Amino acid sequence: MSLRPGSTIGIIGGGQLGRMMAMAAARIGYRCHIFDPHESPCAAEVSGAFTRAAFDDREALRRFGEQCDVVTYEFENVPVAPLDVLDGKIRPGTRSLEIAQDRAVEKHFIERTGANVAPWREVNEVGDVRTALEQLGSPILLKTRRLGYDGKGQAWVHRAEEAEAAWETINSQPAVAEARMTFEAEFSVVLARTADGETCAFPLTRNEHHGGILRESIVPAGAPVSDLEPDAIEMARAIADALDHVGVLTVEFFACSGRAVVNEIAPRVHNSGHWTIEGARTSQFEQHLRAILGLPLGDPGLVASGATMENLIGRDVDGWAELVAEPGAALHLYNKGEARPGRKMGHVTRLR
């Protein structure tokens, strides 16, 4: 059943993804209600309502849910158990959250769908770091099982003597150890899935990271990524189907010697899909809304020959005046306050 314009969409999380989702919702006639523990989340200023409460506040979540016709989320690191008070209104479902919140669980799950993943091991103590180094070869990348993102909660290990320091770097948290992949490119599949199982993928996006943070996304992705498109989309579709996911799902890949290898998944709209706002006939944000509202999926095709999205990180945002004056540059500022190092403050998209 489709929800009519005028319905209220609840968004758990008030960051820039929620902000852009709320802006897309307003354009097609829907109202958004933000749920976030911060005093002034940037998504709240473009939404019709805002509830300030902790993500694990069941009573606040219950009242929030009563005011919404459907509920979604803009990031995956929210407690799952309290969401049961939302009375089945949440899309994507909590299974997508549970899988994506734990890297070891996620990797086991992806392997069961038949998709390729990099060689890896579970790490629960410092001795496991040394064992993983022996089994996977040098170097290995430690990643905390939970909460790490944009390069946080990670440490490289090249020799057994570094195990202790690396373990301390990730605060002795349960982790996964991944073999270093030799790859020609990093890319992502941003795919939408409806409750009926219909799927629709955007053109593959090539991604450039610096310091573990996405710096630039480019479409079309070009070789060698373009050669991997059928396999990558099929893997992303298999993952979405296995999750019974409703909404946008992002799967990040390595292009490795003619193979698409899954790096990780995000059960939501994604930074690498921001180019779609100007560069696609339907943005990733509207596509996500269409899926969770029961509307037909939109056309994901390019409106030009290509697009490049550049993140504005930290003090990059100080160049806003030049960017807003640049012909053909579509500037997005998130109004997040302090421009701390590594903080995503906005982005700019250029069509070509």
Score class of each variant (00 low, 15 high):
E208A: 03
G258A: 06
P92M: 13
M345E: 02
V303E: 05
A260L: 03
R180I: 02
G29W: 05
E66G: 14
Q16T: 02
R31H: 07
Q67R: 13
A115K: 11
L214K: 14
L243W: 05
A236V: 10
V78H: 03
S272G: 09
A195L: 10
L142E: 13
T169L: 11
D69S: 09
A118V: 13
A165I: 01
V78Q: 00
V126I: 03
L136W: 08
R281P: 00
F202W: 02
T282A: 07
L333E: 05
V80Y: 04
E252G: 11
G148W: 06
V219M: 05
S40K: 15
V176N: 09
V261P: 13
L297M: 10
F285D: 02
P296D: 09
I12Y: 03
R340L: 04
I12S: 14
Q16K: 12
E125Y: 02
G153D: 00
R58W: 09
T250G: 01
D57M: 03
A255Y: 01
R31W: 07
L243Y: 11
L323S: 04
L331P: 09
C42F: 10
D84E: 15
F64H: 14
Q67S: 15
R31N: 08
A100S: 15
K143M: 12
S96Y: 15
D299F: 03
P5H: 08
T194G: 05
E106M: 13
L97F: 00
T349W: 05
V105L: 15
T51S: 12
S226G: 14
F50W: 03
S272E: 08
L297E: 12
G212M: 08
